[in-house]
């Protein structure tokens, strides 16, 4: 296994008026290729900050972050945008699809910014949509889809650039438990196919799908342990509906 993510003594300090807020106080973690990691913690623990840094939406105040062998901790905005485009696939709690665009265009979006030609873009987007079982919904707008379908579109969008890591922030937070199970089943399959998945959640049930749980509290790693009693949905759920 090769190291996908190496965080060394990452700190993040926000200036809130007069006050300095220490969101991360020296976090060191290594995540290997094809790991399935849950980052857990109560709100205000710093897990969102950690996720933003891992997702290259933010840079650390101090410390080293190597993603897939590249030091990204001191990159400028444009380089970070490039890394987000090529290396990271985001899945958000609120789906964050473009409301006015259809499924195909939403999934194409990262490829547009990646400078992929129109023809190739369509091909890859369709392939990605097929993987989440939404081919027959390609020309629907997000508001014509159910919550579970929307999240699958978001997953297709995250996968379309074949990123190094899939970064999911409470991916089931806006779904009922049955649909949530479906989505987690999809993540399980993606993991089995070799993807590296990082899951940010505060639900133990959801975290139980991962191999490893990293618990954050007050800007520190409180515990970093392998998950016993893993729940893996072996049976592929209906992906066509």
């Amino acid at each position: 296994m090769s190291t996908m993510i190496r965080l060394q003594n990452i700190t993040k300090v926000y200036q809130m008026g007069e006050e300095q807020v220490h969101a991360l106080r020296g976090v060191s973690v290594e995540i290997q290729r094809n790991e399935y990691v849950a980052i857990m913690g109560p709100s205000g623990s710093g897990k969102s900050t950690l996720m933003n840094i891992i997702g290259c939406l933010d840079t650390p105040t101090a410390g080293l972050y190597e993603l897939n062998g590249t030091n990204v901790s001191e990159m400028n905005d444009n380089d970070l945008a490039k890394v987000r485009n090529k290396e990271i696939g985001f899945v958000f709690q609120t789906f964050n699809l473009l409301a006015r665009s259809d499924v195909l265009h939403n999934v194409e979006l990262p490829l547009i910014y990646g400078g992929v030609s129109s023809h190739e873009r369509k091909r890859q987007a369709k392939e990605s949509i097929a993987r989440v079982g939404l081919t027959d919904r390609s020309h629907h707008k997000p508001n014509e889809l159910s919550g579970g379908q929307r999240q699958r579109v978001a997953i297709a969008r995250a996968l379309v650039t074949r990123p190094s890591i899939l970064l999911a922030d409470e991916p089931t937070g806006n779904l009922d438990s049955k649909t949530g199970e479906e989505i987690m089943g999809l993540f399980d399959i993606l993991h089995q196919e070799g993807n590296t998945i990082i899951l940010v959640t505060h639900e133990e049930d959801i975290a139980a799908h991962a191999h490893r749980a990293i618990r954050i509290r007050d800007g520190h790693i409180e515990r970093d342990e392998l998950v016993t009693n893993r729940r893996v949905i072996q049976q592929a759920v209906h992906l066509s509906a």
């Binding site: 444009n78 945008a81 485009n85 985001f90 964050n96 910014y113 650039t161």
Partner: peptide, 16 residues
């Protein structure tokens, strides 16, 4: 704003 956030998250640069 949200749309801009999504675009940036999936790799849109400032110039885009």
């Amino acid at each position: 704003i949200k749309e801009i956030g999504v675009r940036k998250a999936v790799g849109a640069r400032k110039a885009n």
